[in-house]
Write a protein that binds this DNA or RNA. Structure first.
Length: 940
RNA sequence: GCGGAUGUGGCGGAAUUGGUAGACGCGCUAGACUUAGGAUCUAGUGCCGCAAGGCGUGGGGGUUCGACUCCCUCCAUCCGCACCA
């Protein structure tokens, strides 16, 4: 007790000190973080006596802005899971690293001339500081960093392998190019069924006659990493080419700069070769269904047929792909994509000018424009006709940009009666519409369905659609007019970037022909350049490097690899990060195998998660890894949204009106820094200081307070709603932050951040601390045996928490802890028999306080190594059951009976009960339903 | 347009397999201890109603003794893909 008769700062500081004496999270957290580091508590080694469990976070790009509270959400979840699994007897691999190549550092380098490595290193150490304060159980000795030459050596190594392998469609796996060469030498490419660019057939003689350049050109069409000229998404502002998924609505995803289409020579990865395996692999892995669906969509498999339409008065034919070969008799015109190579050849003199103009026009239209006009169709007749494969009728050929060059064959047979876009086109150009599937009227709208029988269709008349598809396809194959075909929407990934801050290609050019370096020469390190910009002649920044040549003097490639190169196989390097002889040792990969639990953002659904699966499958084929799929289970954490606060400025003044009074004024909402708002009440003085503009601001208050409005938005600097974890840790401690982030709601769901709620988690942690102590702050734990009720509570908690952690439902696990703690206070229970297992259970969530209490309870080893409490169902058996008794489904009262009471007996008890009378009065009891252990329902 | 998800108090969210809707927490109200409290504790808190009671899980309909949960339909919000032949 202390008596203070005047208010003084001294008194306050004494009181604050007292609170800190109770639970000084600052000191405790620092102490244990130091302990973990010193004792290498989280060091992981291969241990064949234990089952392995690999828990992985998507590694971050270390941006200059540091972490906000949304970033660690997934890390906290996976950390809890990893710590829990460890206490359950697993040997845990739980590493962290950095995806360190990337545009922002390079942009910064362009602006300041500072080497991106320098900024990257600085950002990494800032990230590390922030991560360390949250108390993660990473084995930092395994840290990797994609921009480290020791790491990217293996990215380059894999590229060389991809270059030296092709995909055999028959075996459905990657095989060495050298095997392909021996096949060519034996019998040309006649017997080869491999993933390749379009290629003409050649014989063994043809192969042997070819010179080096021709041979290399042929091989290039088969390699899994290949150089090819294509239309690319060129971003002039960034001076680089972007992959399709890096472009959104005609603008770059990073930076938001315009993107145009341009023809260039680029490195590609033949991802399409693995399309079927990428698709089938999804059935074997435990990912959220919506995510698998996105990937299926992305791969875009469709079955159908290719059909050749012979062009009149020409050698050529047009190959089309269709999923509806049954409608072939309804094809009344053909459409080629503007990029189609045959257009120039077949176009007649009369139409040449119009066609050329149309093509030019459509090239000019950006992706965005093309998308905006999906309702209208444009096109141009070429003057040419082709022949229907069965009826031999003449069919006009059009060019139109609703047909995409990159999908199927870039040409379609148009069946206006049964395809809505074709219908639109036919109407516009007055082309006949021929109905071939019996069904709804097709005058105003096409009938795209597959219910109905064939009409006007020669040999398939009266068949149903599915039989017709089969019959037509067979006929096409038998008469060499076409064949069965599976088509995929997924495209090969462009792998070159005209940037500096990425992995250099281990490629040199000899007489213009590309060759890869010998593996022994890796890593090929990034050279120094004077500027991080393209050269005056438009070459990428690497062209500025002095002596950018092999030791024999051949020029090296100027491109660097894209962001997904370094992130595609990082999980493998964590298994054996220091190995400089091979990507991963046999022993390590055979022990750790694959990632058991992968946690990260859903924004990588189509990028990283497709490329990494592709990359892994290739490494599997060449025997580097032992699992075909890299990520067995995957959880997407939802975004944490910001909760913005607003003040309402009366138009044309510097006067602000409180939220509930604003309707009386003409106001504009202004974002205000959430850090000067508490429970939506504005700190008026802080507001005045916040921005010089507001230093003379006036306020119209309500109840003496200024109430702010609020809205859920993205967490962003520009909305002034960013909350920094460091500030919260200073104020509440890391354990509170961890508990609160998990308590917020289901991990997969997007949810708004609200700092006010943090108090609840803080109270829980403080109450947890206090139950171990007396008023003086001394440890006070009873060694008395726990009674039946207490044990029942404990074991119910163990059961529920186990179930919840296994399914990543941390929010309900925490509320279970809160309930247990509340009950223990009610029961006045501070018995070690209950509290000890409680500490162990809570330690994955709040590791620092748990370590401290564990230590205080007399343990010399870290709680990390403690055994997880075992659930015993004998403790939770009840002697009696409380039945909710409902009448017509509405619960009216509760009835306690002994466990094991017969149903008939329960019915009798209910009917005899005083409280029942009121509800039965004047009505007939029709039926009584007793669900054992659950409920009684009386139907009246 | 196609595909997917979500909709529950003032707020974040619970609810096993169809069986007590609103656990747990925030906020709020009242009180206790206090010179004081951004500490702690106690009680209350879905809505309407003095009460008895009634109404309540986006709207409407259905199945069932019983529906947040299953079925049909409509609406809203979010995400992914976007002329995919």
């Amino acid at each position: 007790m202390f008596i203070i008769d005047t208010i003084s700062n001294f008194a306050k500081s004494v009181i604050i000190k007292k609170i800190y004496m109770e639970y000084n999270f600052n000191e405790i957290e620092k102490k244990w973080q130091k302990y973990w580091k010193k004792n290498k508590t989280y060091k992981t080694e291969i241990d064949h006596s234990k089952p392995k469990h690999y828990v992985l976070d998507m590694f971050p790009y270390p941006s200059g802005a540091g972490l906000h509270v949304g970033h660690p959400l997934g890390y906290i979840a996976s950390d809890i899971y990893a710590r829990y699994k460890k206490q359950r007897g697993f040997n845990i691999l739980h590493p962290m690293g950095y995806d360190a190549f990337g545009l922002p550092a390079e942009q910064y380098a362009i602006q300041t001339g500072q080497h991106p490595e320098k900024t990257t290193k600085k950002n990494i150490s800032r990230y590390r500081e922030q991560l360390d304060r949250i108390g993660f159980s990473y084995d930092w000795d395994r840290q990797i960093c994609t921009c480290d030459p020791k790491y990217y050596k293996w990215t380059q190594w894999t590229f060389i392998k991809l270059y030296k392998y092709y995909f055999n469609n028959v075996t459905q796996k990657a095989e060495p190019i050298s095997d392909l060469i021996s096949k060519f030498e034996r019998s040309g490419n006649l017997d080869v069924d491999a993933a390749s660019d379009p290629i003409h057939e050649f014989t063994a003689v043809g192969w042997r006659k070819a010179d080096e350049r021709e041979k290399q050109e042929i091989l290039m069409k088969y390699r899994l990493a290949y150089l090819s000229e294509t239309m690319v998404n060129w971003c002039p502002k960034l001076g680089t080419v972007l992959a399709n998924d890096e472009v959104k609505e005609g603008y770059s995803v990073r930076g938001g700069y315009p993107v145009v289409r341009k023809k260039m020579n680029q490195w590609f990865l033949r991802v399409t070769a693995y399309a079927e395996r990428l698709l089938r692999g999804l059935d074997k892995i435990d990912w959220q269904d919506n995510l698998k669906e996105i990937q299926r969509n992305w791969i875009g498999k469709s079955e159908g047929a290719t059909i050749f339409f012979k062009i009149k008065d020409s050698e050529h034919s047009i190959e089309v792909f269709t999923t509806r070969p049954d409608t072939v008799f309804g094809a009344t015109f053909m459409v080629l994509a503007p990029e189609h190579e045959l257009i120039k050849e077949i176009c007649t003199e009369d139409y040449k000018q119009n066609v050329n103009e149309y093509i030019e026009q459509s090239f000019k239209r950006s992706e965005r424009e093309r998308m905006a006009e999906t309702k209208s169709v444009t096109g141009q007749f070429t003057g040419a006709y082709c022949e229907h494969p069965f009826t031999k009728e003449a069919i006009p050929i059009y060019v139109a940009d609703y047909v995409l060059a990159g999908y199927g064959t870039g040409a379609i047979m148009s069946v206006p009666a049964h395809d809505s876009r074709d219908h639109l086109f036919a109407k516009k150009f007055n082309i006949p519409i021929k109905k071939v599937v019996d069904g709804p009227d097709i005058e105003d709208e096409s009938y795209d369905g597959t219910e109905g029988t064939m009409i006007n269709s020669d040999f398939i008349n009266n068949m149903d659609v599915n039989t017709a598809i089969k019959t037509v396809t067979e006929k096409l194959e038998n008469s060499n007019l076409g064949k069965y075909k599976v088509n995929y929407r997924i495209r090969d990934a462009i792998f070159s970037r005209q940037r500096y801050w990425g992995e250099p290609f281990p490629v040199y050019y000899k007489e213009g022909i590309p060759y890869v370096l010998d593996e022994k020469e890796l890593p090929l390190e990034l050279p120094k350049v004077d500027k991080y910009l393209p050269t005056e002649s438009g070459d990428p920044p690497l062209a500025r490097a002095k002596n950018w040549k092999t030791k024999d003097g051949y020029p090296l490639d100027f491109n660097t690899m894209p962001g997904f190169a370094g992130s595609s196989a990082y999980y493998i390097r964590y298994m054996d990060p220091q190995n400089d002889k091979e990507p991963v040792s046999k022993e390590a990969v055979e022990y750790w195998r694959d990632v058991d639990m992968y946690v990260g953002g859903a924004e990588h659904a189509t990028g990283h998660l497709v490329y990494a699966r592709f990359w892994n499958k290739f490494l599997y084929d060449i025997g580097v890894v032992v699992e075909d799929e890299p990520f067995k289970k995957l959880i997407n954490q939802g975004m944490i949204q910001g909760r913005s606060n607003f003040v309402y400025r009366i138009k044309g003044t510097n006067k602000f009106v409180s939220y509930n009074l604003k309707k009386n004024h003409d106001t504009i909402p202004v974002h205000v820094d959430v850090n000067i708002v508490d429970s939506d009440i504005l700190d008026v003085e802080a507001f005045k200081k916040w921005n010089p503009e507001y230093k003379d601001a006036e306020f119209i208050l309500e109840d003496g307070k200024y109430i702010c409005g609020w809205e859920v938005e993205k967490m962003s600097k520009s909305y002034h709603n960013v909350v920094n974890p460091d500030d919260l840790i200073d104020k509440y401690g890391a354990d509170t932050l961890r508990v609160y982030e998990m308590f917020l709601g289901p991990i997969e769901q997007a949810k708004p951040w609200d700092t006010n709620g943090l108090e609840g988690a803080f109270r829980f942690i403080k109450r947890f601390w206090r139950i171990f102590h007396d008023e003086k702050g001394n440890l006070d734990v009873s060694s008395e045996k726990a009674n039946k009720e207490e044990l029942k509570l404990l074991h119910k908690t163990i059961k529920k928490v186990n179930e919840d952690i296994e399914k990543f439902a941390f929010n309900t696990a925490i509320s279970t802890f809160m309930t247990l703690l509340n009950k223990l206070y009610e029961l006045n229970c501070n018995k070690e028999e209950v509290l000890k297992p409680f500490v162990v259970m809570l330690s994955p969530f709040a590791p620092h306080i748990s370590e401290e209490l564990w230590c205080k309870l007399g343990h010399s080893n870290s709680v990390v190594f403690a055994e997880y409490p075992k659930y015993d169902e004998n403790y939770i058996e009840d002697d009696s059951v409380v039945y909710p008794v409902s009448f017509n489904g509405k619960m009216r009262f509760k009835l306690e009976v002994d466990a094991g009471t017969e149903q008939e007996e329960i019915k009798k008890l209910v009917m005899e009960d005083e409280k029942s009378k009121k509800w039965i009065e004047g009505k007939d009891v029709k039926k009584i339903i007793v669900v054992p252990g659950k409920i009684v329902n009386v139907v009246v």
